[in-house]
Design a protein around this nucleic acid. Structure first.
Lengths: 335, 335
DNA sequence: TTGTAAGCGTTATCAG
DNA sequence: CTGATAACGCTTACAA
């Protein structure tokens, strides 16, 4: 039914080898013949069968983007923005992009020689076995967060410094009782955020108290608002909070509203990562910006290099963050 | 390097044909032999090469999810939620999912026999040539919006009725000056929303005036807030607006804030589709709910049927919508 | 410069 | 029930 290389060869009166050569731009075919072949390809609107090519070349021409715990994650703009960067990155290449959101899909994708490489969204530590990942023997780059003890290159925001900037910004506004709303400790990202929070408090001469840290039990901020509201209610001296993500920050604003606190009058809140929607909601969210698109693009370019066998010198690419003051932060009320 | 069907055959002391048989669960192999083969497969941790299988079977085992105008779209929760539904749907199948966000990627994906079917996110009318789409001869289902004169099955929200419900809800609250914030008319979705708006006004005995409709020029609501603010400023008699999407509604809230209007006191706003974040922002957005996840799932199941050659009876699957009253709607001020 | 032919890893059609 | 063997569509030595 669909036309193949042989059809082209016959119509052009040459061998399939020659056709293959012009297809892959290889030398060894007369200018004139090449021209004729190209014309026939055009006429027949021939497209090489990628699967067959893959078989012959022992490469697939596609890469996997794997997202652990897929369910809700797509709705988290942090991920979707990085994903957009990845997609943009792939536009420059000839690779196709396969996505997997569940562990079933992941196994299928990575174990069946269906891809040449993988971009792995920061899994939680317990989720994906490092051993298994190493075992599949594919080039892998981790994106979004660091994977502990991993041999894979990683592209991520400088979240520790991001939190530092957020805390400092609140401090400079006059806040002295600063809390942190953090993700689960099973994520390295949360761990680093807490570190940044602690050390900055120290730097600033403020006391650290575990009292002031709230760790959501699940990554889904939706479900966490009620418990966050309870936390805020129990900790009224807190005048400002930093969050380990913008998504959480939006939840905090909701939690504050639930107990009658208004933002930023009664409570200042700072997010992290500065996802697009943060500037869009009302009041617009103060956050710590990072080039999420750039992170995605960089991840793909590193992966491309790995696939091409290049040696990767920088195995931990850290994007700098920068505090953006918007409308959810103000001087504390009683100052 | 990687082990193949031959390795299994040799180690099991059988022919590759037999191995292939047990692999695909085909009859014609002794219980005992089959058992032995299975054991070897297990021992060797053998996985069939999907590319090779595809070549032989003339199917690829993967489907394409194509998203026109990819750039910003991923950050639109309407799309990402449907996408989540699609992903969930694929979990039930043995298919892998390939994504394309740009026209370059799309051509590559659809023309190279890389997929067995495609789920097409509602393109604008001018974007994708129907002729081309038909020409590729792949099963296609359109999702999210209707494609004019298209021969492809379609799964979508009943947006016309959704707007009707939104307008009616505002009416019942006492609003008599109701505006609409709509997307560009190049999208059928916008066209249907406008229809719903007009006809409902008529039903309710209210006058329709093009004065009260604001059509954003681009799909990116981010950039539209300024012009929306100007519109609202020029149309102060409007006490409530319905929007063709939640995303736009969020923009309206921002636009209102820009000119000192507060929601819902000075202006009631209703979104459409009820994306997850709408219940999450503050104040939570009144909207017209539709089962976006269900839409995604349904689209994949229809596609699966098409691929299996089943006849599709229902070529236009419409999901019903339901108004959800939340915090961005109230009685008009001077009532 | 060109063509022949041997793979690539499967499936599927035959015979036995 | 089992095993050769010819496809599948392409790349790539190796010859000519």
């Amino acid at each position: 039914m669909t036309i193949n290389i042989k059809d082209v060869a016959i119509k052009a009166g040459v061998s399939i080898a020659s056709v293959s050569r012009v297809l892959s731009g290889k030398p060894g075919v007369g200018t004139e013949t090449a021209e004729r072949i190209r014309k026939v390809i055009e006429e027949l609107d021939y497209r090489p069968n990628l699967g067959a090519r893959g078989l012959a070349k022992r490469t697939t021409g596609n890469i996997a983007v794997v997202i652990p715990r897929g369910s809700f994650i797509l709705n988290n703009p942090f991920f979707s923005t990085i994903l957009e960067g990845i997609a943009k990155g792939f536009d420059q290449t000839n690779y196709n992009m396969m996505m997997s959101f569940t562990s079933l899909q992941q196994k299928r994708l990575l174990e069946t020689q269906a891809v040449d490489g993988v971009i792995l969204f920061s899994p939680r530590n317990e989720e994906l076995s490092l051993e298994w990942l190493k075992g599949i023997g594919l080039p892998i780059v981790v994106v979004g967060s660091y994977l502990e003890d991993s041999p894979f290159p990683c592209v991520r925001p400088d979240d520790e410094d991001g939190i530092r900037q957020a805390v400092t910004a609140l401090y400079q506004l006059g806040h002295r009782n600063i809390g942190i709303i953090n993700g689960p400790m099973s994520s390295m990202h949360s761990v680093r955020c807490l570190n940044g929070y602690k050390s900055t408090l120290l730097e600033l001469g403020l006391d650290y108290s575990s009292e002031n840290v709230f760790e959501i039990d699940e990554f889904d901020a939706f479900k966490a608002t009620k418990t966050m509201a309870a936390f805020l209610k129990d900790h009224r001296k807190i005048t400002g909070v930093v969050c380990s993500s913008d998504y959480l920050a939006i939840g905090v604003i909701k939690a504050a509203a639930m107990i009658g606190l208004s933002v930023p009058e009664d409570l200042s809140v700072v997010g992290a990562d500065d996802v697009p929607i943060s500037d869009f909601i009302t009041p617009s969210l103060s956050s710590v910006h990072v080039d999420l698109l750039g992170i995605g693009k960089r991840a793909t370019s590193i992966l491309m290099d790995m696939i091409q066998g290049k040696q990767i010198r920088k195995r931990d690419v850290v994007f700098k963050m920068e505090y953006i003051n918007r409308a959810t932060t103000d001087v504390p009320k009683n100052s």
